[in-house]
Structure formats: C-alpha cells, structure tokens
Amino acid sequence: MSETVDLSIFSMMMCGVLLLIPVLLVHYLKLGINRNLLISTVRMVLQLVLIGFFLEYLFKLNNGFINFGWFLVMIFVAVYSVINNSGLKYQHFILPVFLSLFIANLFVVIFFNTFIARLNFIFDARYMIAIGGMVLGNSLRSNVIGLGDFYKALNKEEQLYLYKLSLGASQFEAMLPFAKKSFTSALNPTIATMATMGIVSLPGMMTGQILGGSVPLVAIKYQIAIMVAILASTVLSIAMSILFTIRYSFKKSGVLRKSIFK
C-alpha cells in the first residue's frame, strides 16, 4: 500500500473554497451563526496547526512522563468541557468528574496498550495520545449527556424524586430510576454508532489507517478494538461520574442542592 498523499498549499486552499458553501448558505438563510462558524473554523485551524507541531515534537521525544502529562492535560480539558456543557458549576464537580474520567480512561488505555496492542512501552505517544484521545473524546460526549441529563431530570422532576423519598426510599433508591434513564441516553449514541458502523459510516480511525497505508482488514481489527474500548470507557466513566458527584450534589436530607446549577 502507498503512503498517504500529503496535502499541498493548493489543496488546503481548495478546502477554503469548500468552506464557502456552508458560509454562503448560512449567510443566505440569515441563520445568524456566520460569526460563530468563522470563529470556530479559525480556532480549529489554529488549534490543529499548533497541536500538529506539538504532537510531532511529542512523538519524536516519546517520553513516558511527558506523554502521561499530556494525557492529563487532555483529561483536564475534557473535564472542563463536560461540566461546562452539562450546565453545572465547576467547584462542585471538578474533582469527582476528573476522578471518573481519569480512572476510566487510564484503565481502558492501559488495558488496550498492554493486552490488545501488546506494546512493550505502554506509554508510547502514538498509542497513549491517539487511542487516549479517541476514547476520551467519546466518553466526554457521553458524560455531557449522562451527567447533564441526570441532574436536569432530577431538578425537573424533583417532586417525583421527593415523593419516592417520602415513601421510604433511600437517596440511592430514589435516584436510581433517574440514573438508569440518563445512563441509557448517554450510551444510546455509542450503541447506535456500533450497530451501523461500516455501512452508514466509515469511522475516522479506520479511514485514517487506510489513508496511512494499512490493509483494510488490519484497520477493521483496530476499529473493532477501539469501539469496544470506547464502550468500556463510556460505561465506566458515566457510572463513576454519577456515583462520585452524588456526594457533592445532595444535602444530608437527600434533597438536591440547587447551588450545583449554573
């Protein structure tokens, strides 16, 4: 198989031409999101250029401590994003969400690198950062849904929750139906993606590997392994996020603290 064809300056300029389609359409439809669209595009380009240089340096150095340190930075950014997008306040959630994302993702990445990829150096930058990023990115999305839905539902249906407490339910028993529902909503996108994978979508990792010169059958094996890793880290991190945050979100009387919401 041939190596990936590098994209020239001309190719990147053609990308800009392609970008004109959504920009003009959004402008024509007066959706009012042109500014955001352009800012996001500029941010994406700048971030990716910077990260491109940074990763090139990181991969060349391939130092276990530095790789682990970068993995921690990725987790911190994910924690910020999960809390911010769930409509919750940082001070109550930063520690429990960090712990859940850290434990779940580190466990899955180390398991993947040790027993699936069977690496001699489990903190290898190519695996730690790339696999870690994919696993973390997916658990981030699921945690935004899971954690956000859980607290929003408890707040919206507080009367029902309190009613259960009045019937003799413990705090855990009363919130369990809410936790189960949020857990399911958070997992559904991953399960749906898995069910249609290869037919509806050719996943990014597989596409990347094929463009990078891998045989499709090798790319498929990796894709199966990564999807299972994503599922495992998603399930683990949501369960831990809900469990770890409960302590900070309820009063001793079992009543939800309103101060947790932004």
């Binding site: 249906e157 009367q159 029902l160 009613y163 407490l165 009045s166 339910a169 413990s170 028993e173 139906p177």
Partner: peptide, 30 residues
Amino acid sequence: RRKVAYVSQDLNIGKGRVSDFFQETLHYKA
C-alpha cells in the same frame, strides 16, 4: 419519612404499570 405516609397533590407519580408502581414502593429496603 419512614413513619409518615404522604400523598402529594402532584399527580406525577411516575410511569409504567400500576403493579410495578406498588412493587417499587415495596422493593425499598425500608
């Protein structure tokens, strides 16, 4: 809460089968 039986004016008592509603109450450890 374990000595008082409260009936709220709120008619949102949950979803699902009526028998499961009773079962959930009886399922609580208390």
